[in-house]
């Protein structure tokens, strides 16, 4: 079964004197896919990437890249490129020298080097900046130099460690699209670490959500959004996150269950006919819609989404309702109830 996957992680564990790194991580990545490792800080996503890159060696388990066991191989023997969060550009070298550094190390002939440099700079829109030092570039340009350095290596696997976290919001959005387009044009496999669920959901074909060193769920963005396997996934994915209601508060559900509901499935009800009686705690106007935060004693994160501008006074009582088929039912331990009607 390992043959048809490009990258395989099998039961990987890494511990630092008692402190948990990652535990029991297994992952199969098909060639040409865009995989996002997602999770809160300290969840082990960066550790997983570093293990894959060969910057750390796992305590247990096996790593295969392109069918070859590379568990204990050096980083340079794994045929991959990497984009660092800090970009890791060499500050004393110009853009061109930075991009060609790896080629020079591998003794690629000069003509070929220059040709590859030109192509990589073309792709990343950096033509004309060859002679600049990283210190003379903006954050977005430095980021693109780091990308160009990864592209020029011509590897089929590219690892990215939160490459957008040092950029401002607007730039982040455009670079996100660039990276996705680049990955598709070059047909490379990308493993991408991020703590930003929007990034993961919008770019990835496959999202791996992690918490405390363990994988919580692997799936397409749609699967994570519409069928979260536990309450952690439910609350982590989506903006706003899924609201969780104690089962006892709704007629027909047991006390031990937790019920999840997405904001877009919540509708306002006529007074007296709603399933929950809440009060308004805050209003957030986003342009196309307004998010109305609701307070209920046995629920967290309840939000009502109303189109257009619709500000309500704080403290106003409001009744809401929703359809049963939009509910996500979780067991007492937080896992999704199998019998429940999912999406």
């Amino acid at each position: 079964m390992t043959e048809k996957y490009f990258v395989v992680l099998k039961d990987i564990a890494k511990r630092w004197n008692g402190k948990l790194g990652v535990e029991d991580v297994s992952l199969d990545i098909p060639e040409g896919s865009f995989v996002a490792l997602l999770g809160p800080s300290g969840c082990g996503k960066s550790t997983t990437l570093r293990l894959l890159a060969g910057l750390e060696i796992p305590d247990e388990g096996q790593i295969l890249i392109d069918g070859r066991d590379v568990t204990t191989s050096a980083a340079s023997d794994r045929n991959l490129s990497m984009v660092f969060q800090s970009y890791a550009l060499f500050p004393h070298l110009s853009v061109a020298e930075n991009v060609m550094f790896g080629l020079k190390v591998r003794r690629v002939p000069k003509a070929e080097r220059l040709e590859k440099l030109k192509r990589a700079l073309e792709i990343t829109g950096l033509l004309g900046y060859e002679g600049r030092k990283p210190g003379e570039l903006s954050g977005g340009q430095r980021q693109r130099v780091a990308l160009a350095r990864a592209i020029v290596a011509g590897q089929r696997l590219c690892l990215m460690d939160e490459p957008l976290s040092n950029l401002d919001a607007k730039l982040r959005h455009s670079v996100r699209k660039d990276i996705k387009k680049l990955q598709q044009d070059l047909g490379i496999t990308v493993v991408y670490v991020t703590h930003d669920q929007t990034e993961a959901m919008s770019m990835a074909d496959m999202v791996v959500l992690m918490k405390d060193g363990r994988i919580q769920q692997i799936g397409t963005p749609e699967q994570l959004y519409n069928a979260p396997v536990n309450t952690f996934v439910a609350e982590f994915v989506g903006a706003p996150p899924m609201a969780l209601i104690e089962g006892g508060a709704l007629a027909g559900y047991g006390d031990e269950l937790t019920i999840g509901i997405r904001a877009e499935n919540v509708v306002q009800a006529e007074t007296g006919s709603g399933r929950l009686k809440c009060t308004v705690t805050e209003c957030e106007f986003l342009g196309a819609e307004t998010l109305i935060g609701l307070d209920h004693k046995s629920a967290v994160g309840l939000t009502l989404m109303v189109p257009g501008l619709s500000l309500r006074p704080v403290g106003q009582p409001i009744e809401i309702t929703f359809r049963d088929e939009d509910l996500h039912v979780f067991e007492k331990n937080g896992n999704r109830a199998l019998a429940a009607a999912g999406a």
């Binding site: 910057l55 340079s76 490129s81 890791a88 550094f101 190390v105």
Partner: peptide, 21 residues
């Protein structure tokens, strides 16, 4: 920074080249 060494490692840079360059 430590990650310069890591970036160089991934490119397959030898210890000597890393020190010199």
């Amino acid at each position: 920074p430590e990650d310069l060494k890591e970036a160089a490692d991934i490119e397959g840079t030898s210890r000597w080249t890393y020190t010199r360059r």
